[in-house]
Amino acid sequence: MGIWDGLKVAFEGISSANKELVEGIKEITTETKRDIISDWKREVPAVGNTIEKVERTITTLKNVMEQIPDTSSGPFNPNIKLRKILKEANKTSNITSKNSIKRAQHLKVSRIGYSHHALSINEYEVIHYQDREVKIETIESFAKGAAIHVVDTPRLYKKDEVLARAHSKLGEKEYSLIFNNCEHFVRWSLNGD
């Protein structure tokens, strides 16, 4: 093995370790945030509920901001080419075929001006908020012809528990764009209180 091959292997190992570290930090952060909100809800319900609503609002705003196209161009936006390249790379790496969808995965499709989220039951069905109600539908009905992306959301429960949690909300009609939307439902099923 040459020196360049050795360096390449070393850098790949470092890169892999960094990715694992970042994922671990994300999971710990999510667990810690969930525990803090849970503590506040138990000790001071009014404050805890407000914190939870603010957290959900931030999630919704991030989701909306992801969907707003970058209209700036020219010499005042030097990152426009880089953003386009990264966006194309993400499209190709995150698009999922129906056969690669597994149980209890956070799925997302982009629509005009927003994205829609669901939890996979299997490779054929999802459970999600649709028409302001938690329903089970086919993958095709969820996607409506759009590419399906798997979102890497930390899962704190076993897959059976995640699906049981989601099914417990079946028929629920408490949709709120800001406080209880399709993304909130999926994240709650995967790792919420």
Rank of each mutant, 00 (worst) to 15 (best):
I3A: 07
W4N: 13
W4Q: 15
L7E: 08
K8E: 08
G13E: 06
S16I: 03
S16G: 07
A17H: 03
N18L: 13
K19V: 12
L21V: 06
V22W: 10
T29L: 10
E31L: 15
D35C: 08
I36L: 03
I36G: 01
I37V: 02
I37A: 01
S38V: 00
W40I: 03
R42F: 12
V44R: 12
V44L: 14
G48K: 00
E52A: 04
V54F: 03
I58Y: 03
T60D: 13
L61D: 12
L61Q: 11
N63P: 04
M65D: 11
P69I: 06
G74F: 09
P75F: 15
R83M: 11
I85A: 15
L86P: 05
N94T: 14
I95F: 02
T96Q: 11
S97T: 05
K98I: 06
N99Y: 03
S100L: 06
S110Q: 11
I112K: 10
G113I: 02
S120R: 00
E123F: 02
E123Y: 12
Y124E: 06
V126I: 02
H128C: 10
H128P: 03
Y129R: 10
E133I: 09
K135S: 05
I136E: 03
S141Q: 07
K144L: 09
K144G: 10
G145L: 05
G145Y: 01
A147M: 08
T153I: 07
R155W: 04
L156F: 07
K159Q: 11
V162E: 07
V162H: 06
R165A: 04
A166W: 04
S168M: 01
K169M: 13
E174F: 05
F179E: 05
N180F: 02
H184R: 00
V186K: 00
V186F: 02
R187E: 13
N191G: 15
D193P: 14
